[in-house]
Amino acid sequence: MLDKNGIAKRIAREVKDGMYVNLGIGIPTLVANYIPEGVNVVLQSENGILGMGPFPFEGEEDADLINAGKQTVTLLPGSSIFDSAMSFGMIRAQKVNLTILGAMEVSENGDIANWKIPGKMVKGMGGAMDLVASAKNIIVAMQHVNKAGESKLLPKCELPLTGIKCVKKIVTELAVLDILPEGGFRLLERAPGVSVEQIKNATAGKLIIEGEIPEMLL
């Protein structure tokens, strides 16, 4: 079973040289720490950065320079700054190659819910609805089950949706799965030490298992 950093490390293997990548808040942010040397990517932050760098050194933080999670960051050589309309313009126009974000629920047809629990938690969708509605390549980083032990990979989302039929791939602490065009979670890889049986038990939606399922490489 993977921890948060393990999930991030596995997703980092999906990041290819030359990509423009948008990383959501939480586990997706950690992906930046595991992008292999020699793989050149440009990180987009939807508040208006291409070429976002690591956190600043202590004492060098700049109140005018933050990421979409409101954390102080730095700029790398070759970076650019733009306004919010252009930022979502490049997202809508599908210039950003890969979007990695978290989710509360994903359904077997690729719907995603990650912004609201009615009556309990309403933080807002931020840029997530724009991203999932336009991005061609969306990977979800999430826990396979919630704190109550219930599956978050469902036949149908129960929470208010963020977007429909958009998720392509999911990486959890147990597995890597993709979502087939005709619907269903296809199991691609198992996390180290995790059995197919465990993944079956943790998946409420339609799970498709074809042949031997390899253990994931990290």
């Binding site: 050194f57 060098e60 933080e61 933050i66 999670g69 409101k70 102080t72």
Partner: peptide, 12 residues
Amino acid sequence: EKRIEQVTVRKR
């Protein structure tokens, strides 16, 4: 004041 919501830094 230019308050920073989340100061995140790395060590040298």
